[in-house]
Amino acid sequence: MFSFIVRRIFSSIPTMLILILISFALMRFAPGSPFSTERGLPPEVLANLEAKYGLNLPWFEQLFTYIKNILFHFDFGPSFKYKDISVNEILAQGFPVTLTYGLWSFVVAVTVGIPLGIIAAIRHNTALDYAAVGITIGAQVLPNFVMAPILVIIFSLWLEWLPGGGWNGGQWQYVILPVIALSTSYMASIARIARSSMLEVLHSNFIRTAKAKGLPMRNIILRHALKPALLPVVTYLGPAFVGMITGSVVIDMYFSTGGMGQFFVDAALSRDYSLLMGVTILFGVMTILFNAVVDIAYAWLDPKIRL
């Protein structure tokens, strides 16, 4: 097990390097310099600017410095647009916000989705099951960018219960709508997967044996059926995590929460390449690490996986 964990973590290093390489190549081959303005700068000024940001060096040297700075100093370089602030400072400002509502969304999606799916499977073909299936099908077509305006219309404009945007230091009123908007469709997917895998497990032979032995249903579900039924859910957690990270961009933009997504869109619109890359790489590394954690959890849960 230990060697598997070490191997799995090491195997994600090339993925990270490829991610950095791709973003760097994109930045290199982008037409136009980040400093090109409509009126055009005098060549001397441009040369000075390029020298300041190290853009006059050969590309491999730039790449090497870039990777070296990220690895050893966790430094993503200066922002091209915001003159007196580095990418690090911007990330440090936005990351805690994204992390707060992102974590809550993840927790909500898992803690609501799994029980919903499991209960629907146990009460198969009852009104409860149909209700759960209805909810999951409906939520499939309600991604975060559809949920966000709908929630704002209902809870901010009509009922006036919750603020329709802002962050205010993470007060709970400001967190609720982003969390619901971000988690709904993933909650539905988790419930759907949990339901179908639980149904499959409940029809398998070892559950029949357990029933034949006269075990109480409660014990059968909790001790025998739950663990194998959750395996497919665990595999889905990786993609769900990616989806939520990506979805945070919409949340930040729509609710003006001030997380990293907002900076990403701003950077995209103003062609601030170093900030774009910084956000992409940080999100990418988080994804890759999370996938590694999911794989390890899967190996731990499923005895059939050979380590």
């Binding site: 993925t15 994109l26 930045m27 995209a268 774009l276 992409t280």
Partner: peptide, 20 residues
């Protein structure tokens, strides 16, 4: 394919749109 799948491609895609 594994490597490509563990990259949050939405961001790369957006960078592509911005640049080209």
């Amino acid at each position: 394919v594994d490597i490509l799948m563990s990259i949050p491609y939405m961001f790369i895609l957006i960078i592509l749109f911005v640049m080209f």
